[in-house]
Design a protein around this nucleic acid. Structure first.
Length: 414
RNA sequence: CGGGCUGUCGUAUACCGGUAGUACGCUUGGUUUGGGACCAUGAUGACUGGGUUCGAUUCCCAGCAGCCCGACCA
């Protein structure tokens, strides 16, 4: 991508109404734009990051047997009435609307009900289980108060996965695999070392749910971490009997603010029973599948990475989710030789499959470097005097500032 | 949903009951060119509605919008 053609530009200052670091940096660098409170647009750079995050999650979910689907955002109230979650008294985040004929519709805030209903069509025998489906979908939640930039919005992209099993043991086994898959996701996204499996309240249907909490001062949650076991408990379940059950003591815990970057639940037969899902076991008896649900908010994950990994100059993307791997910067755009050198290098890199943002703009080097720092692409390749003299290319690591001098041929993939 | 604060060019801000200013960005021309250059030039602004007043962007009321604290987060 030639930066002179890029849809967005950087800004020196963030809008005064954005207080959170993630939104300030993402808006300044041109990744997102605010549409209204809690509603953000993803622009070309931001969408590339989201797509990278999506691909990591997709690979990890596929690896444990997930099958990608895409359910509808518009929701039929009937199935939500079956689980008693249509009433605003029960679920207060609904966006509700109406058809022209006045019948009600909802905009999906989660998808347990439609996914469970779907099973009635495709699951009829124990041989059909387990089944695991997941999707990336825009969720709508009428939050009373949106806040923290892209971290808590009214419309957001979520990966939600649902697993269905013939018995509890099978769910338990899958649940452990899901925990590992989630750990892989956060590890690959660059926040693994700060993310803890956290015991949280499980509601009526299991003792705990599990959250994935990333330590960060911008977080809304408080967790207590046991470093020895690498686990944490949410403050909402910080009770002596629970700690004893987990084999940890109060003294071993350290408190931290954190961001919930994922949450997984075991529902037992809730939803499947409410939606009337059954299957025949080996004896021809009707049974109800047990199910679990597994969620990750992609925007929140992206925002967490920004909160955690940025510095005073801007964002620092891990290579795994960066919008581009290389930022090719022509520091001498006034020099015809430099332009043809950089053009050629850009063409070669692109031809060989490298992802490159090429700053070919007619701007001064200082401005380009400042923008490059702000956007946060992992490796900056600088075309300047040194390159023209046929020596080595200057490659700067955004994360460490380390300057690596490499031979031009060495840089090219293949 | 309760409480508080705020709405001024695209962005950030200033001033003011009587001609709305500055910086960045943008236009045009020129100089400059490895860490957000400079000169000149032009364009662009008072959330909406009502009230008070000779006169309101300014004061008052309502609405709308945004932010913060709390509650909430199935």
């Amino acid at each position: 991508m030639r930066q002179s053609q890029l849809f967005t530009k950087t800004r020196r200052e963030a809008p005064s109404d954005e207080v959170s670091k993630n939104a300030q940096l993402l808006i300044r660098a041109g990744f997102v734009s605010k549409e209204m409170a809690g509603v953000y647009d993803y622009l070309p750079l931001g969408l590339r990051v989201m797509d990278n995050i999506r691909q990591i999650i997709r690979e990890e979910m596929n690896a444990i047997g997930g099958q990608e689907v895409l359910l509808s955002a518009l929701q039929d109230p009937e199935i939500w009435k079956m689980s008693n979650r249509w009433d605003d008294e029960k679920v207060d985040v609904w966006f509700k609307t109406k058809l022209k004929n006045d019948s009600e519709l909802g905009l999906g805030c989660t998808h347990e009900e439609p996914m469970a209903r779907m099973l009635r069509e495709y699951i009829s025998s124990y041989r059909d289980l387990p089944r695991v489906t997941y999707q990336f979908q825009t969720k709508f939640r009428n939050e009373l108060r949106a806040k923290s930039g892209i971290m808590r919005g009214r419309e957001f992209l979520m990966k939600d996965m649902y697993s269905y099993h013939r018995n509890q043991e099978d769910l338990d086994a899958f649940y452990e695999k899901a925990i590992q898959a989630y750990k892989n996701v956060y590890e690959r996204a660059g926040i693994g070392d700060k993310t803890f499996v956290t015991f949280a309240s499980g509601g009526m249907f299991s003792k705990f749910s599990h959250e994935f909490q990333t330590i960060c001062d911008a977080g809304e949650d408080i967790i207590y971490i046991n470093d020895e076991k690498g686990i944490a408990v949410n403050e909402e379940v910080l009770q002596d009997d629970i700690l004893a059950g987990l084999g940890i003591t109060r003294e071993s815990l350290r408190e931290a603010k954190s961001i919930e970057v994922g949450n997984i639940f075991k529902y037992g037969t809730r939803y499947t029973s409410e939606l009337g899902v059954t299957f025949k076991d080996e004896n021809g008896e009707d049974q109800i599948p047990v199910n679990g649900a597994y969620g990750i908010g992609l925007g929140r994950l992206m925002g967490t990475v920004v909160e955690l990994l940025s510095d005073e100059k801007g964002i620092v993307w891990p290579e795994s989710i960066a919008p581009f791997k290389y930022h090719l910067v022509n520091a001498m755009p006034n020099n015809a030789d430099a332009v043809s050198y950089a053009d050629e290098l850009y063409d070669l890199l692109t031809l060989r499959g490298a992802s490159v943002l090429y700053d070919d703009r007619d701007a001064r080097a200082g401005e380009k470097f400042a923008d490059s720092d702000l956007i946060g692409i992992p490796y900056r390749i600088v075309v300047g005097k040194e390159a023209l003299e046929g020596k080595t290319l200057e490659v700067v690591s955004r994360a460490t500032g380390e300057v690596i001098r490499v031979d031009r041929e060495e840089l090219l993939p293949q």
